[in-house]
Design a protein around this nucleic acid. Structure first.
Lengths: 177, 177
DNA sequence: TCAATTATGGTACAAATGTACCAGAATGGC
DNA sequence: GCCATTCTGGTACATTTGTACCATAATTGA
């Protein structure tokens, strides 16, 4: 079986990281064995050796990204609005390409029954970070919608603008307890 | 210039419709000149004649889909929760593939400054359909998040489940007026 | 130590794709 | 009716891609 040695495992994760970078730069169509291998600095055969087909590569990259995101949410203490606004602004503007790449991976999950668990855990992690309860569930949905809206339209473009939108969301959510 | 005659315009829209169907079936990677031409029942050269490159094809398909969606929202009278729930269930379960295809097109828009207007109008149309005001803005965000959540995780899977989620959203939104 | 497994890197090839080209048919304006 | 423009459908070709193959090196377990 491939990827059982320590060195092999390192190369495996290097390739998965490269997938995300390729995705950032050129979108889903740019993810090829050759592009990923070149990005990771390994020969083509290494990419095909560890991930026999492209699908395997993308699915593995999604699972890794999801795991990292879930951990990030889990570490999050229930923060203030200002802090969340800064984080969202950083995500959607500074690290925009990386976030888009993650969503593109998540969209691949829509076509694969086997990846539903990953998507489900992603959502649960966000809800838990917001504290649980009916209000938090609505807030999680609205925040997810807000992130997409910013990625699409660019607005709100400032931390203050995002904070105002978040204030509305949390005020509405608070009404549900 | 290409596509100026009536017959030419018909073929143009036939090709754009074919793009969405190809997208439904095989995702973004499946959209090639040949696949689209075959789906539309026209020779390869027709596809390259009306849309000289693949990018042109995808962008035009997005603009057309956006236009249709905006019109659909505009025709919508402010409906009851049950009606919205049935519509969302239809979207996310019965016509799931088509909706995913639309979102995949919208994600392409993220990489193109020129398509920001289209995305912006999409959102405005949804907000207007919900009635306007701070509450409606939050509701629009949450509904958008809800749609994605259903597409990803499959839950809620029933009309009743969706209705319950919507009830929470509207109750929260109502608190903002 | 040594044999078996795993990793490496190079090469080759068939299939698919974007794109260009062209000769002729249809169409439109005048 | 005539001519310029637009459209049609076919073909060809260079590139890129997935994938397979193989000889050799490294690593592991007993």
């Amino acid at each position: 079986m491939a990827g059982s040695t320590a060195k092999g495992e390192a190369r495996r994760t290097a390739l998965l990281d490269a997938v995300v970078r390729v995705l950032e730069r050129g979108g889903p169509g740019a993810v090829t064995h050759r592009a990923v291998a070149a990005e990771a600095g390994v020969p083509l055969a290494a990419a095909t050796y560890y991930f026999s087909n492209i699908d395997d590569l993308l699915v593995s990259a999604l699972l890794k990204a999801t795991e990292e995101q879930v951990e990030l949410f889990a570490r999050l203490e229930t923060p203030g609005i200002g802090e969340v606004a800064r984080m969202l602004h950083d995500w959607t503007h500074t690290r925009r390409a990386a976030v888009i790449a993650q969503y593109e991976l998540l969209f691949l999950a829509m076509r694969r029954e086997a990846l539903r668990d990953a998507a489900e855990r992603w959502y649960r992690a966000l809800e838990n970070a917001l504290g649980g309860g009916r209000g938090s569930r609505v807030a999680a949905l609205a925040i997810d919608g807000l992130v997409l809206r910013i990625l699409w339209s660019g607005e709100p473009s400032t931390v203050a603008g995002i904070e105002a939108a978040l204030a509305d969301i949390f005020e509405a959510a608070a009404a549900l307890g």
